[in-house]
Design a protein around this nucleic acid. Structure first.
Length: 628
RNA sequence: CUCCCUGUAGCUUAAUGGAUAAAGCAAAAGCCUUCUAAGCUUUUGAUACAGGUUCGAUUCCUGUCAGGGAGGCCA
């Protein structure tokens, strides 16, 4: 039993009593009390019945409390009415502690069957393979990866996709750089290839377009070759993009992010998908050939609003626009179309998960990567386009399959950090731009974080060997970055500041990880497993009760987070757990407690805490180190 | 001009329409011969403005102001 069940029990009891009293049926809340002074659980039924019954909320709550007290159940020890009108309940401490701690020993603790096995696609990352991942991409990746982990915990059957735009303009740019711009294919002195392509080739070639006309002409040519995919240029492009992609993936793996399948845009273009979708859209009247006005000769999607312009799908020269790549892909993800792809293994990732890739060659392997629910993680600057895609998709199929754009605000650079890139912003934060070279690479951030965490760890643990130190430092660095990217609301802009990102105190990943390391240390020193099959009555201080209750909230948080696609709820939960534990740690001694019974009871609690925290952190993709 | 997002303490953030608005950072003070001080205790300090709906609004609605983003036969 967890808090969920306590709430459910109270709810049904209140419902029953309210019915017995002849009160009208209302949708009331049973939730955690906002302050422990009020009790453990609160119910607002008094407020809701005040109007229909023409009575004061406290009067109504009292009438329910009176009957409740006469039929007290196991899990509730007190029923109180607050003068404000709330109906408050105090939980029976010993049964609550015992049940929560016992539940938390289960492997799937915190799991909640919201998804009922629904096949779900989560697409994230999808960075052009012409540059290294920067801190803005990291937000996308971490949101996507965390959402996927949370949905799996809530029993969705999730496939994670990474869309590789290997035939777009940005890729064409670096190919121009290599073929016509005089750039060597070999990066200087061991620079990572993706960094080289992005920081050097891409940035300088886009700069040169303005002055060197012939280069700009080559760009158009290369783009065309990439789309057609037959020439030597296309082959060369394929080679380069795959090399960049591999380096990008290394960064993702470093962050603890894995995928199920890589979808190559070039193959979507060369497959039959677009043709099928285009015909379908024609026959359904979603798109039509414009024969008047400025869009004459284009296939357009009519806008349903007066002010918005129609969207061009196919240019008057017959070449499709980028939205024409997104629609078939979206339709494919939902499994609306026959799958033209075969799948071959790209590699086996560190967590033993196989990473597949699409191929048009008949390899005989067919796998279903589609879903009834599709979640696409793209920053909210693309909301308008995603809205159009969502609308078109909804017209394709009248089933309850759903396409969802999960948007988030961008990451900007703080004035100070911009200054380190020789950019004077006049005290304002600045949008990142790959083209202009205004960004901070993810690897770089992880590296400097790693140096800092290495020093800290070494200082605190002089006895640890080099391998362990490096491992812990990397775990903490990743934890710090992932936590920073996920802890705030999706629609808040993150202003990234290099100096601030090195902070390891307070509301940060390392703070949470540290609580885990402390708990592990206690359990190690106790040198024996606690005995769980005992009464836990003596866990009666406010610190112990708070910790127990927080542990008992796990599945509620998972449900909330999955239902609202809000990963920060889990970050907040991890933080709450750590705060409760640290407070307990400072105020209640475990190994030197007054009696063997107390030592054992507290050990149970510590064990339960570290199990729960590790599971919650794993939903954030953050490792829980044993030492720090 | 139109549409979208955001406005909470000096800074970064939290709060299914509920009770005395919660944290972290920064600043000030204290706590390590006792399970790791990446920690814990104190102190100072906030809902942009004006209306509305409600028993009750940081939350919902309208307007104003401020900041950011989007509106290409670019992606």
């Amino acid at each position: 039993m967890t808090l969920r069940l306590l709430f459910a029990e109270i709810r049904s009891a209140v419902q029953k009593i309210s019915a017995e009293l002849g009160y009208p049926v209302v949708e009331f809340d049973v939730s955690e009390a906002s302050k422990s002074d009020f009790g453990d659980v609160s119910c607002n039924i008094g407020f809701l019945l005040a109007k229909p019954l023409k009575k004061r909320p406290s009067e109504i709550s009292e009438s329910i409390a009176k009957i409740y007290r006469d039929n007290m159940t196991n899990f509730v020890s007190q029923v109180n009415v607050h003068p404000s009108g709330y109906l408050n309940f105090v939980a029976n401490n010993s049964s609550l502690a015992k049940n929560i701690i016992k539940s938390s020993t289960s492997n799937n603790y915190g799991g909640y069957d919201l998804g009922k096995g629904t096949k779900t696609v989560v697409e994230h990352t999808s960075v052009n393979p012409n540059k290294a991942l920067h801190i803005g991409h990291v937000r996308n990746i971490i949101i996507g990866d965390t959402v996927a982990r949370i949905l799996r915990k809530a029993n969705y059957d999730v496939n994670v996709l990474n869309y590789v735009d290997d035939s777009g303009l940005q890729v064409a740019d670096i190919i121009v750089g290599f073929l016509y711009g005089g750039f060597s294919k070999e990066p200087p002195h061991g620079q990572k290839f993706d960094h080289y392509c992005g920081d050097v080739v891409y940035v300088s070639i886009t700069e040169r377009y303005e002055k060197e006309k012939p280069l700009a002409e080559k760009r158009v040519l290369v783009l065309k070759e990439l789309e057609e995919g037959k020439s030597d240029i296309a082959k060369f492009g394929d080679e380069i993009t795959r090399q960049v992609l591999e380096e990008q993936l290394k960064t993702c793996w470093r962050l603890g992010v894995t995928y199920d399948c890589l979808n190559f845009e070039s193959q979507i273009i060369r497959s039959s998908l677009w043709k099928t979708v285009f015909e379908k859209m024609k026959s359904m009247g979603i798109t039509y050939l414009e024969n008047e006005g400025k869009n004459t000769g284009c296939w357009v999607i009519k806008s349903d609003s007066e002010v918005e312009e129609d969207k061009i799908l196919v240019r008057s020269n017959g070449i499709a626009t980028y939205i024409a790549k997104d629609i078939p892909y979206a339709a494919w993800k939902l499994g609306i179309l026959d799958d033209p792809f075969y799948y071959k293994q790209y590699m086996v990732q560190k967590n033993h998960q196989v990473l597949w890739q699409t191929t048009l060659e008949n390899t005989g392997t067919k796998i279903d990567f589609t879903g009834d629910k599709v979640i696409t993680i793209i920053d909210s600057r693309q909301s308008r386009l995603q809205k159009i895609i969502t609308k078109i998709i909804s017209e394709f199929k009248s089933t309850n399959k759903s396409y969802l754009h999960l948007g988030y605000e961008s990451v900007t650079l703080s004035p100070d950090t911009a200054k380190t890139l020789n950019l004077e912003t006049g005290g304002k934060s600045v949008q990142m731009s790959g083209r202009k070279g205004v960004y901070v690479n993810a690897d770089y951030v992880l590296d400097i974080l790693g140096v800092k965490t290495y020093e800290e760890t070494k200082k605190r643990n002089p006895d640890l060997d080099e391998v362990s130190l490096v491992k812990i430092a990397e775990q903490v660095a990743v934890g710090a970055l992932r936590y920073a990217m996920i802890k705030q609301d999706l629609d808040k802009i993150i202003t990234f500041d290099l100096t601030e990102s090195l902070s390891l105190e307070g509301d940060t990943g390392p703070y949470v990880q540290y609580a885990h390391a402390r708990a592990i240390r206690i359990l190690e020193k106790a040198s024996k497993m606690p005995e769980f099959d005992i009464s836990l009555d003596i866990l009666s201080t406010v610190y112990e009760k708070n910790l127990v209750k927080t542990i008992g909230k796990f599945d509620i948080q998972v449900e909330d987070s999955a239902k609202n696609l809000s990963p920060k709820i889990i970050a907040r939960y991890c933080y709450d757990l750590a705060v409760s534990f640290n407070s307990f740690y400072e105020h209640a001694k475990v190994l030197t407690a007054e009696s063997p019974e107390m030592i054992n009871s507290r050990l149970c609690l510590v064990w339960s805490f570290k199990e729960t925290l590790a599971k919650a952190l794993s939903l954030l993709g953050i490792d829980a180190p044993d030492r720090m």
